[in-house]
Amino acid sequence: MLKPIGFMFGMIGIALIFFFFVIPGEDQLLDSLVSTGPDITLDAWRESFRYWAAVSAGAALLMAMVWFVWGQWVVNLNYWTKTNRTRTLWFIFLIVSLVGVVPAMYFTPAGQEWGRLSWVFYLANNLAVFYLATLFLSPSSFKYMPWGAMAVRRW
């Protein structure tokens, strides 16, 4: 029981790295690149970016946690054939986690220059949080379901 809980805390840890290091770093980069129109100040735009970046990364974390809970406690592997479509299911979770960026894209005010770069960051953050969390910390029974996990995961 301790191990799964540890893995879930690990997922939260990965998301926290994004909240405290990656998103602020992106924010700094956007500060130097983006120029806003007369309707909004750069500081207000950046605040909006930080907020929506955190929300969309949080959505990715939530999907990773749902994947974990499903794999650890919901699915019953009494029947081995249930593993046949699990990679497809993981992929669906990945896609669903990307949906989390839509509100961020919609509600982030447009910038005059480089404003769309925020969309790229939302997508990248979202993908990275879900992928890294599941790559390293999927439930033991499904640990090699994420693409590339077989090459990196040794625990």
Partner: peptide
């Protein structure tokens, strides 16, 4: 194939 389904196999 599709050995990723069975971690114990890997």
């Amino acid at each position: 194939g599709r050995d990723y389904r069975a971690p114990w196999y890997v």
